[in-house]
Nucleic acid binder design. Structure first.
Length: 376
RNA sequence: GGGGAGAUUCCAGAGCGGUCAAAUGGGGCAGACUGUAAAUCUGUUGGCGCAGCCUUCGGAGGUUCGAAUCCUCCUCUCCCCA
C-alpha cells in the first residue's frame, strides 16, 4: 500500500503518481465514478471497466448500510463480490449525508442520528460504527466520518464543526487500528480536511490532518455552492500543508474545468456525480464544450454523438437519435450519455496525466478550460 | 326516422354572468444539478411598443353595464333507440 509520485509539472503543482491498493494500482490524477448504492447509475460493470477505463469507483456507507444492509453485503463476501467490480472501491463515510440530508438527522458530539429516507427508521452513525460498516463493505479506501458543512456557514458553526470532525477523526483512527479487514485485502483510511471557506480553519485543519500521517488525505466541504475562486483558494491553502508524498483527494469535485484547475493545485483524486447525474438529465461534456442533447437544435443533427469521444457510444449513436431517446423517455438515452460522460471524464484526467508527463500541462490546461466550460 | 350529449387556448380536460388570456394533466421550449433522498426539480407555453393594451373559448346574431358562461338560428361531432 503506497503512493509513488511519477512526475511533476514545472509550472504548477500538478503531478502524476501510482497508488497501490488491495485491488490493483490506480494511476493519478484520477476521476472516480460515483456508485452510491453499489452501482454507477445506468452503467454496467463491463462498460465501466472496458469502455470508460474507470480504475476505481465509489460506494456510500449510509446508503449501503440502509439497503441492501450489512448482512447481505457480508454474506456476498463484500461489495466487490456483490456488484462484480474487481478494481478498487472507495466508500464515503456518510459525512456528505450529514449535509445533504440535514433535514432528517440530528448531530451530536457522539455522532449523527439519521432518519432513514426510505422508511423513516432511526439509525445512529458514530465514528466507530462507520469504521465497522466500511470494514464490512470492504472498500479499499475508506473515509473518516466528518461533517460536510454547508455554504454559506457562520464562522462559529464552522469552527465548532471542525472540532467535532477532528475529534471524530481520532475516534475513527482508533477504531480503524483496532479492527481488521474482513476479506483478505488491505484497507486504508483517509482523513478529511474541513473548515468551510475560512483560511485559518482550513490551515488548522490541514495541519491536524497532516499530523496523522495517513496513507492519503481528503479535502471535503467544498463544491457545496461557494464561488469557484473560493474553492480554488481553499484547495491551494490546504495543498500547501498536506504531505506531498501522499495522494490528495478533493471530494465531490467537479466540473471538467474544476478538475483541471484542481490538478494544477496538486489534487490527485476526484469524484463527482455530475457526469452521471447530468448525463441522465441530458447534459454531455465534450472536449469542445457542454451540450444539452435535449435541445431542439439537435433534432436533425445526424452527426455522431461526439466525433472526438473515446467511448464506443460516441460513434455508435447520432445526436438526433440520443435527443429522440430523451424526448421519448427511453432509458437507453441516459445509459448512452452516462457512458459518454464517464469516458470523457476519464479521458480528461488521463490526458492531464499525459500532459504533465510530457511537460505541456499548464498551456494545455489553459486552452482546455475555456473550451470545456463553453456551451455548444 | 326518433331521442340525447357536446363543440374551450398544441392535445386532453375544468370553468357555466364580472376576481378568465382562462384550473389541472400531457406535449413543446428552456434552465438547474459538484463526497447522488435526483431517469429529478424549476421556469415558461395567444400577440404586442408588455405594472398596460389588443385578439381568443365552433359560426352568425341577440340579452346585459359586463358573456367562454344566458337566448335564437346555423355548422359539425358523438351516443342511444328504430
Amino acid at each position: 500500500m503506497k503512493f509513488t509520485i511519477k512526475s511533476s509539472d514545472k509550472n504548477s503543482n500538478a503531478r502524476t503518481g501510482v497508488l497501490q491498493t488491495g485491488h490493483g494500482e490506480i494511476e493519478t490524477p484520477i476521476f472516480m465514478p460515483v456508485g452510491t448504492a453499489g452501482a454507477v447509475k445506468a452503467v454496467q460493470i463491463p462498460d465501466l471497466s472496458n469502455d470508460t477505463k474507470a480504475q476505481i469507483i465509489l460506494g456510500n456507507t449510509y446508503h449501503l448500510y440502509l439497503r441492501p444492509g450489512l448482512k447481505i453485503i457480508e454474506a456476498a463476501g463484500g461489495l466487490h463480490k456483490f456488484n462484480g467490480w474487481q478494481k478498487p472501491i472507495l466508500t464515503d463515510s456518510g459525512g456528505y449525508q450529514v449535509y445533504s440530508l440535514a433535514n432528517t438527522r440530528k448531530l451530536t458530539e457522539n455522532g449523527v442520528v439519521f432518519r432513514s429516507h426510505i422508511d423513516g427508521s432511526k439509525h445512529e452513525f458514530t465514528p466507530e460504527n462507520v469504521m465497522n460498516i466500511q470494514r464490512t463493505i470492504g472498500a479499499d479506501i475508506i473515509m473518516a466520518f466528518d461533517e460536510c458543512t454547508p455554504y454559506p456557514c457562520e464562522y462559529n458553526y464552522a469552527k465548532n464543526s471542525l472540532g467535532i470532525t477532528h475529534r471524530w477523526l481520532d475516534r475513527c483512527i482508533k477504531q480503524f487500528d483496532n479492527t481488521e479487514a474482513k476479506y483478505g485485502h488491505e484497507q486504508m483510511l483517509f482523513p478529511i480536511v474541513q473548515g468551510s471557506t475560512y483560511k485559518d480553519l482550513r490551515l488548522k485543519s490541514a495541519e491536524f490532518i497532516a499530523s496523522k500521517n495517513a496513507k492519503g488525505n481528503a479535502i471535503g466541504g467544498l463544491s457545496v455552492g461557494e464561488p469557484h475562486e473560493m474553492m480554488y483558494e481553499m484547495t491551494e491553502i490546504v495543498c500547501g500543508v498536506l504531505p506531498k508524498d501522499k495522494p490528495r483527494y478533493l471530494m465531490g469535485v467537479g466540473t471538467p474545468e474544476n478538475i483541471l484547475e484542481s490538478i494544477a493545485l496538486g489534487i490527485d483524486m476526484f469524484d463527482c456525480v455530475m457526469p452521471t447525474r447530468n448525463a441522465r438529465h441530458g447534459i454531455i461534456y465534450t472536449s469542445e464544450g457542454i451540450i444539452n442533447i435535449k435541445n431542439e437544435k439537435w433534432k436533425n443533427d445526424f452527426s455522431m454523438l461526439d466525433a472526438n469521444g473515446t467511448s464506443y457510444v460516441d460513434r455508435q449513436y447520432s445526436k438526433a437519435y440520443v435527443r429522440h431517446l430523451f424526448a421519448a423517455n427511453e432509458i437507453l438515452g441516459g445509459m448512452i450519455t452516462s457512458l459518454h460522460n464517464l469516458a470523457f471524464y476519464l479521458w480528461l484526467v488521463g490526458e492531464a496525466k499525459n500532459k504533465i508527463i510530457s511537460g505541456d500541462f499548464s498551456n494545455w490546461k489553459n486552452v482546455m478550460v475555456t473550451k470545456l466550460s463553453s456551451r455548444i
